[in-house]
Amino acid sequence: MAAGAQAARSAQETASPYAVVEHGRREDRTETEALSGIVHEALGAGFRVVGVDRLRGGSKKGVHRVHVDGPRAASVIVYSWAEAENFWPAADDIDEAHPFAPASGLVPFLAAQRRLDRIGVRVPEVLLADDSRRRFPADMAVVEDVAGGTLEALWDTAPARAADALSELAAMLDVMHRRHSRQYGRLDVLERGDKASGVSCEQLVLERALGDLGEAAERDPGIGSAAAALHDRLQQLAARVAPRREHRLIHGELGPDHVLVDASGHPVLIDIEGLMFFDVEWEHVFLRLRFGERYPALSQPGLDPARLDLFMLAMRLSLVAGPLRLLDGDFPHRALMRGIAEHNAREALALLVE
């Protein structure tokens, strides 16, 4: 498959097209003034904000590129975790300690950024974190602008540079996956001394998959007609998984659009709020979906085939139910979400005949 075709297919797997400017869309004056105050606090009064672009940053937070003039011309990225930036429908009785609870906010972001930086995994530098809401009605962070583009984009524009970055990304993942814990759960939950919900990773994945199947069956006719068979298949795959007592540090949603490449060609991980200790196979199933024919560069020995089988079907069902749930709200990129749901519904049904 050609690189361009692979990138197009990759874009259909998940939706977080970070770092693509929505051309022509500018912040309003009030929001720009608020962002200016935050950036001045981060960089110093000698810098003057000269422009703000809103970037497509996924579905849970606002992402703004703020251009400044001063001792050196530059730009920074501002994340804002405002309610208005979260396109997911509100849910009642969310268990915040659940590994699959929505991973969004300044606290999980800072916990993940500190841990990854400490172990030598490149992430954007944090210039300012602000939860006071004095200048802006949301928690915010000003971070380094890694302006070299995404790894996904580089596959078409600079394939040799992308190949080098992919190789380095494999080494970074090895560093992460060698960090073990007897407990599983999102990093910020574990750091505050809480225990994650559930009895095992595989049981959590099964429960989530059954819930996703129920949602998807109500909205997608193909999934609905095969719901009983998919339910039985999930139970069969879960029964093959042996207990495990050790978990590894994973990103949890790592696609080539969640990897920036800096000016020196080094990969930089973003959208890190979901960093957690979990079964490493959950990471590899997602990597396989998003990196496609390039996944072998990231594969690791010793993965559990039984977990991979269960997690793959679970992931497909999640990528049907999740996008359809997002369409209940006013998420703007609706055709993309619909395409993701339809693609993954076909792939989930194909797993019944393997």
Rank of each mutant, 00 (worst) to 15 (best):
Q6C: 02
Q6L: 09
A7T: 12
A15G: 11
Y18T: 01
A19H: 14
V21S: 03
E22K: 11
R25Y: 08
R25G: 08
V39N: 05
E41W: 00
A42V: 04
F47T: 06
V49W: 00
V52K: 10
R56N: 12
R56E: 12
G58R: 14
S59H: 12
K61D: 04
V63C: 09
R65Q: 11
V66I: 05
V66C: 05
V66K: 07
R72C: 04
A73P: 01
A73D: 02
V76R: 05
V78P: 06
E83P: 14
E83V: 15
E83Y: 10
N86K: 14
N86E: 10
F87S: 12
F87C: 10
F87H: 15
A90F: 13
H98R: 10
V107S: 12
R115T: 03
R115M: 06
I119S: 07
G120F: 03
R122I: 08
P124N: 06
L127T: 04
A129T: 01
D139Q: 14
V142P: 04
V146W: 00
G149N: 06
G149S: 04
L154G: 04
W155R: 13
T157W: 02
T157K: 03
R161T: 05
L166F: 01
S167D: 12
E168M: 05
A170W: 00
A171G: 10
D174E: 13
V175W: 03
H177T: 03
S181C: 02
S181I: 00
A196K: 02
G198S: 06
G198H: 08
Q203E: 13
L204S: 11
L204R: 07
L206H: 08
R208T: 07
A209M: 10
G214D: 15
E218T: 15
P221S: 10
I223N: 10
G224F: 07
A228K: 12
A228I: 04
D232P: 01
R233T: 08
R240G: 03
V241R: 02
P243H: 02
R244F: 01
R245G: 00
R248A: 08
G252C: 10
E253H: 12
I270P: 00
D271Y: 06
V280F: 01
H284E: 06
F291M: 04
E293A: 08
Y295V: 00
A297P: 02
L298T: 06
S299L: 05
P301E: 01
G302C: 04
D304K: 02
D304R: 02
D309F: 04
M315F: 08
M315C: 14
L319V: 06
V320D: 13
V320M: 14
G322R: 14
P323R: 08
L326W: 07
P332K: 12
H333F: 15
R334L: 11
R334V: 07
A335E: 15
L336C: 03
M337D: 13
H343L: 14
N344P: 07
A345F: 09
A345G: 08
L349E: 11
